[in-house]
Design a protein around this nucleic acid. Structure first.
Lengths: 338, 338
DNA sequence: CTGAAAGCGCTTACAG
DNA sequence: CTGAAAGCGCTTACAG
């Protein structure tokens, strides 16, 4: 009745075949639901499989078929809820499509990233969903493509070539946030947090454009790069408050930065939305329930993940089609921090 | 020079062997770094592999060896940063040990959980790191064990049998938090948020014990179960504030709940740490930079993930050893919300 | 030091 | 409708 706790060798179709007194081929066929097998035989096979506790060995089948239903996803910063949400959307879509995901976390470590990319490749994955670590050389994209593995790049662009990409309109997003702040009468507005890189540059461009549109001068001293973590943003906000008391508002690199700023403000007895205006970016779940709730730029993180999955799935089924991109259209969501 | 973008059929050791004018066996040996092969031959083989763009097919090797270096991890609520942190610690340890992880997210959906468990099993994983969805029948643990797959259960206990488990001392943790609150003079203390289940009961027990220790009466009306999300906690806190103005403090089911409560408090113009005392549970990264920073019970989430990995790794290398558990010792960390 | 052969668990033409 | 055979990409005794 009960299976042995740790079978020395797995039950295979061979065993099932013997039990059901048919050939391996027949077993394989009924397992695949082929209509070729007479129902009575099929039943016998299924019963035998059941009885023996047979487990289908998909890896063996995939080897034989030269196929693969696994996707490698590499993420660099799961501690940022934005990426966690992207991952959730991505994973859901992928398993709904019958795939299973290898997940690796790089912590922005290029060495580790290279290692996991290689390992996944050796595992014969059907595709990559790749969110490159900061500082990833553009060349790795070419390398991956030479491997012949369908790939969608997420969030952070990687060079200017044609490749499937799911991201957001960063420039427009920050521009929207800035226009709102300017419209509210703010004139001394900081750009807070974030590490230099393609996304940073895009968002900073939005900051500059909004300033220019309003005929306001751009002041380099008002951009404060920092580790895109709560701690980094917290410290950096404190520094800004001290050095630039004239600043009354900030567009943040992302929500995480805004959360750090929120805590720094609180520490100084300042209330966001009253004493200082703050705009985030991403619209992470937590933004709706920070204290106060964060006004931000919504790019629908988990939808972004789903769209990335779609792009990848399309690429897999049509390897030679033209590169596509999904660019989330940013949407202002005004809560109480602005 | 450059590889074809999408090779019809992968290069195999057979091709490498032909190129290097040796046998497949020799190629296999040098790939494994066997000292059996003369250095000059080995070099020739490596060059041939390099030249042809050969990729080792680990799945084929593992099939042949009847081995596996992949671990299945199933997580149910990545939107809760606690689980994201556990996952990060777990994954890191596992890849450091030479494994690669299949990750599946269930969103507390039992059907999906069953599905991913089965899929992973068919992928021939070496072990499971399993955080059961709420409502998981105890029987699935037995099922998994009958499959003969080493498994560590994380965070949520699953029945009373002997199994490897990584979790925290929930009762003691809440007891600590409550003792602190009581020590500060609070007498009407709520237990806020969380869905009924084993973890909930353990934490609630801590709440009751602390009350009893201080000769305070337990009042069922002061426990407020709710969805363990910011939104759920937010709404529930509002309701509590209205219905029980006499309450001056709350021990929260976890940090996420505390964050929701923080935002509800803010909405009512109340300041945590001054007008109301709040204690969280978990000590998620975000707790250090909420507004105000959250006082909480530290159970070191990412360490918990690492310890779960260790337990699993030990189980894999010693399948018949006695069941072990890692129970994180809770530590009070006092910031400003209490 | 290297090669020929068998086999991991499966699938897929091809016969019959 | 079912079986025998070859083969997916690898490894591992076993010869020599």
């Amino acid at each position: 009745m009960s299976r042995p706790a740790n079978p020395v060798r797995a039950i295979t179709i061979h065993d099932v075949a013997a039990e059901a007194k048919v050939s391996k081929s027949t077993v394989s066929l009924v397992l695949q639901g082929s209509g070729l097998i007479r129902e009575e035989t099929a039943r016998r096979v299924r019963e035998a499989a059941q009885k023996l506790g047979y487990v289908y060995n998909r890896r063996a089948a995939e080897l034989r078929n030269n196929s693969s239903r696994t996707i490698g996803v590499v993420i660099n910063d799961l501690m940022n809820p934005f990426f966690a949400e992207v991952l959730v959307g991505l994973e859901r879509k992928l398993v709904d499509a019958g795939y299973i995901v290898f997940m690796a976390h790089t912590s922005e470590d290029l060495r580790r990233q290279e290692q996991v990319l290689t390992t996944m490749r050796e595992q014969n994955i059907a595709g990559f969903a790749f969110c490159p670590a900061i500082g990833t050389p553009v060349a790795v994209l070419k390398t991956i493509r030479n491997w012949g593995i369908p790939t969608v790049v997420m969030v952070r662009p990687l060079g200017s070539g044609a490749y499937d990409y799911a991201g957001s309109d960063n420039t427009l997003g920050v521009k929207l946030a800035m226009a709102h702040l300017i419209g509210r009468g703010h004139r001394q507005i900081a750009f807070l947090g974030g590490r230099r890189g393609p996304v940073f540059e895009q968002r900073l461009a939005g900051y500059r454009q909004a300033l220019a549109d309003a005929h306001l001068a751009f002041d380099e001293a008002l951009v404060f790069p920092a580790d895109p973590t709560r701690q980094g943003a917290h410290d950096c906000t404190l520094g800004m408050l001290d050095a630039h008391p004239e600043v009354t508002a900030a567009a943040c690199y992302n929500d995480l930065v805004a959360f750090g700023a929120l805590s720094a403000l609180g520490e100084r007895g300042l209330q966001a939305g009253k004493d200082f205006a703050l705009m985030g970016f991403d619209n992470v779940l937590a933004a709706a329930h920070s204290n106060p709730p964060l006004s931000t730029v919504d790019i629908q993180p988990s939808l972004l993940g789903e769209e990335a999955a779609k792009l990848l799935l399309q690429r897999i089924s049509a390897p030679d089609s033209a590169a596509k991109r999904y660019i989330a259209a940013p949407q202002l969501v005004l809560r109480q921090s602005d």
